[in-house]
Write a protein that binds this DNA or RNA. Structure first.
Lengths: 210, 210
DNA sequence: ATAGAGTTTTATCAAACAGTCAATTTCCGT
DNA sequence: ACGGAAATTGACTGTTTGATAAAACTCTAT
């Protein structure tokens, strides 16, 4: 007996929803929720506004679908921080993966940045539950490494913040980074420079040792 | 002969412009340029919309006045990095002052973050000239310190980025920081924790030394 | 090939928006 | 106290915005 079955999606539905979400990511990541318009998204997706609203009845529905879809991807690098690994390689890997995400998914990074910047009205609960629990758990891991003398002692939560901020900076403040570095260091060279610098910073710091 | 003299401002004019800019800072820092509305700003400033537009004829004029007014304050800490000082105290001071600015002027930080995040359409020129020149100049200073062995060798421009991102994070991502830290570490305790952590990170890094 | 579900468009709406204008009220130096 | 400048307001305009309704069209399983 299949009562109330999951409505299975048609080919057109799948395609159009994907095109809408892609266009919406462009718009929302650049202008935030309020600044982006449905017309804009519809044009980006190559369809009329009423047709777009046939797939997502309200503007907010598109936005929420986007956020839901991106959350797992976004938190995955931290989730895979392995308690049983060596702290230094684990850390190095985490930083590199976050930096790669800034390079490969800058729109996603800006979407979250916009949401937080604007007070996170739509994801406060998530921040206080899922995100907090994940950070609490991984802070314990890091704290354990520190107590065992395998990492310098420092506040693990602020340490996570510093990894987030330094890596996401290259996506969120891309325009500024480009302007300051000038046209010379574009492309992959820039990414490698950033990776090398962050490794030095996080492992060795800036104070010379005798 | 005083031809075309500067129109001197009345008391009311001075007061109202200040109230408008303050309300505008609230609105723009929270919603960005497109997301903020003139009605909203007028209400925040406690006056009618036509009256507000009597002082600033266009929405964009308010925004530009705000940015102009804030730029000097914002760049001052980097500008006062002193070539002839000791690198470590200079660095420590710069980080602390940037962190204090995030604590004392979070709205200003968010305003800039919003502008950059949305592609910096109104300040691209400034980024490519004034900001780039300042960073170039101070990068030379830092580079000199490194060549003299007074700082670890690392890319000075990325070093500046990392100081900006880690300190501004506490203003721009305040909601997230609060959610993750929980209600316990509120107020000044949080600030001191961050200051202590960043000092450890930037000076010593996280890898333990024998 | 065709019926019915699925898709798209035209036309339209009310609310929100930035900005204008003329008329009124308040301020302030004399 | 008064006259002109400065300040304030209500009423309004044209546009953009999110959203709806109904009609027309297209796809697909049988």
């Amino acid at each position: 007996m299949d009562h109330n079955p999951e409505p299975r999606k048609t080919r057109i539905q799948t395609e159009n929803e994907a095109r809408i979400l892609d266009a919406a990511l462009d718009a929302f990541s650049l202008h935030g929720f309020r600044g982006a318009t449905v017309d804009q998204i519809a044009e980006g997706a190559g369809m009329s506004k009423p047709n777009l609203l046939y797939y997502f009845r309200r503007k907010q529905d598109i936005y929420e679908a986007l956020i839901d879809r991106l959350l797992d991807t976004w938190l995955e690098p931290l989730e895979s921080l392995n308690e049983n690994g060596d702290p230094i390689p684990e850390l190095r890997m985490y930083i590199r993966r976050k930096l790669e995400m800034s390079r490969d998914f800058p729109r996603e990074s800006r979407l979250f940045a916009n949401e937080i910047l604007q007070g996170a009205p739509r994801i406060t609960r998530m921040l206080e539950t899922r995100l907090k629990e994940l950070v609490d758990e991984k802070s314990e891991v890091i704290s354990g490494w520190m107590k065992a003398g395998r990492l310098n002692k420092a506040d693990p939560r602020h340490m996570i913040f510093s990894i987030w901020s330094t890596t996401q900076h290259y996506a969120d403040f891309d325009v500024q980074v480009r302007a300051v570095l000038g046209p010379d260091r574009g492309g992959d060279g820039r990414f490698e420079d950033a990776a090398r610098y962050l490794e030095t910073l996080f492992l060795d710091g800036l104070k010379p040792r005798p």
